[in-house]
Design a protein around this nucleic acid. Sequence first.
DNA 1: AAAAAAAGTAAAGTTAACTTTACAATAATA
DNA 2: TATTATTGTAAAGTTAACTTTACTTTTTTT
Lengths: 68, 68
Amino acid sequence: MKNKIQELRKSRKVTQQELADALSVTRQTIISLENGKYNASLILAHRAAQFFGISIEELFIFDDEENL
Amino acid sequence: MKNKIQELRKSRKVTQQELADALSVTRQTIISLENGKYNASLILAHRAAQFFGISIEELFIFDDEENL
DNA sequence: AAAAAAAGTAAAGTTAACTTTACAATAATA
DNA sequence: TATTATTGTAAAGTTAACTTTACTTTTTTT
């Protein structure tokens, strides 16, 4: 699953650390999400979508046929 | 985090087993989600929302101030 | 009321999201 | 070019989502 986190973060001139703080996670979590190391949990996805003012469906790119 | 899975499943006369099969998870997972034992992963949330034809934000009730 | 279907409980195991710490590489700025 | 800010890598630990199996309880149907 891909996401638009890095793209949106950069366009808004927010650092990884600032985003991490805003979402109450570590910077490591932001890095790993941006670089596709793992998927966000539902709650984190919701927080991130809220932060960027869009829906979860808009922030994440779900390709069907993906494993849990 | 709460969700409307049980409510929607019943209103559509779908059994837990049928829903589990449709979402490619075990019945145990459905039971635990319906009974609030744990939260769905983002991908499962997406599959469930698609199944019911609504958005993730409509299917899940996010109360802010929740832990990851 | 009996049988069958559906829902629930319990418990042990696996996996991956997230944390923590520490260090390396790149980019920006003085 | 030197310094600082930002991003990335690595690795070990914790926790919770999800699985599997087996059994019990409730609901539905005959």
